[in-house]
Design a protein around this nucleic acid. Structure first.
Lengths: 208, 208
DNA sequence: CCCCCTTTCGAACGCTTGTTCTAATAACGT
DNA sequence: ACGTTATTAGAACAAGCGTTCGAAAGGGGG
């Protein structure tokens, strides 16, 4: 990994600026004007170097075919429903995924940590306070079939007809569900009674 | 604000998909192929409608000159320190802002809601549990001098030498600090004792 | 000074792409 | 059925745009 020449870093910052400003990448001739370079082939030359170093990705023969490398990705996370104490937890199906009309949340990959099959649930009611989750909070979920010990999961307790968010520990003959709050006591349930609906990977609270 | 035709919403979602995928907007002919439309002028026609409705912004005569409206902007929020019970709350100064080496958080404007002067604090310890905030949580803050009743604020209690996050209510002769948790009781303090350090606009918890 | 490498220059070629125009077709209320 | 408006077709134009190429200009190191 070499370091960039002054011209290359000027081009790179111009790319960021242009993209932030206009919403689409510049043409080579835009870069010529923006960076006060004299010829398109000079830009082509340095662009090739920037691509080599991995700072950008180019689609050849395509106008404005420049993509900035680096996790500036935005992920659209669907809010597929709400989670409340007395109602079953909605689980994503093929139907619910593609739907465009659905409410959604725009996040960076920093929050989803690159995981796929991420969705969100809106918390209704204050029944999850022992997991430090409030009414109106958004819970980021990853669709999983099984959980490992220590995972924060969304479970449906069949007998109690309750949805809850707790840390999952499989112990001999029973399941311990530990609230994410040191002051609260865990609850113990029959393994047959728990239905794991997803893994919690984050909580987002918008205040006010 | 009319509603979109099926073709228009299909174009719109194709725009999102293409942009997420490639990092730059599609050409009109890309849309023709991607949405199985028969002619470029049909796309032009519907694009014009989408622009009219404010869903996109176009730069005429410019290839791929389509920008999606709506806050797909990414904001870099600096994590300027941590907040704990026994330590003062760090307040952003001109020094702390521009620093590049600092740890930071990449968020969409959906979370910061377009506000400026937003920073983040990492919560150390479990002293904020009564505000439903856990050890390790990130608190999104907006720098403000004064607070209004009902605002969720970060305050420094001079006498107790404690930092805490509560809802702020100025009452006759005293300040009521109400935890964001119905099960907890408020605390009352002398107005002289409170120092408002910022307004909480969000909480982010990464689980596991 | 000479050799080798990097960088710059300017022009030209040819595909790409937004736009426009005319005509045709569908949708729809009266 | 009629007229009006919305939508679609297809083609063609002109400017936009990435690419290429040969040559020239630096720029160290021996």
């Amino acid at each position: 990994m070499k370091e960039l020449s002054t011209k290359q870093s000027r081009i790179l910052s111009f790319l960021h600026q242009f993209l932030d400003n206009k919403g689409y990448p510049p043409t080579i001739r835009d870069i010529v004007k923006g960076c006060k370079i004299s010829s398109t082939s000079v830009v082509e030359y340095n662009l090739r170097a920037l691509e080599q170093e991995g700072h950008i990705r180019r689609d050849r023969e395509v106008s404005r075919g420049i993509e900035l490398s680096g996790g500036r990705r935005i992920v659209r996370v669907p809010i597929i429903g709400s989670i409340a104490a007395g109602e079953p937890i909605p689980v994503p199906t093929s139907d619910t995924w593609g739907l465009e009309a659905m409410e959604s949340l725009e996040l960076t990959e920093e929050l989803t940590r690159g995981k796929k099959e991420v969705y969100a649930l809106k918390v209704k009611g204050t029944s999850m306070v022992d997991a430090l989750i409030n009414d109106g909070d958004l819970v980021l979920m990853q669709q999983v079939a099984t959980a490992e010990n220590g995972d924060m999961v969304a479970v449906w307790l069949k007998r109690e007809k309750e949805a809850t968010l707790k840390r999952f520990y499989l112990e001999p003959g029973r399941v311990r569900l530990q609230p994410d709050n040191e002051e609260m006591k865990p609850i113990y349930v029959d393994p047959e009674d728990v239905e794991i609906q997803g893994k919690v990977i984050g909580v987002i609270r918008k205040v006010e």
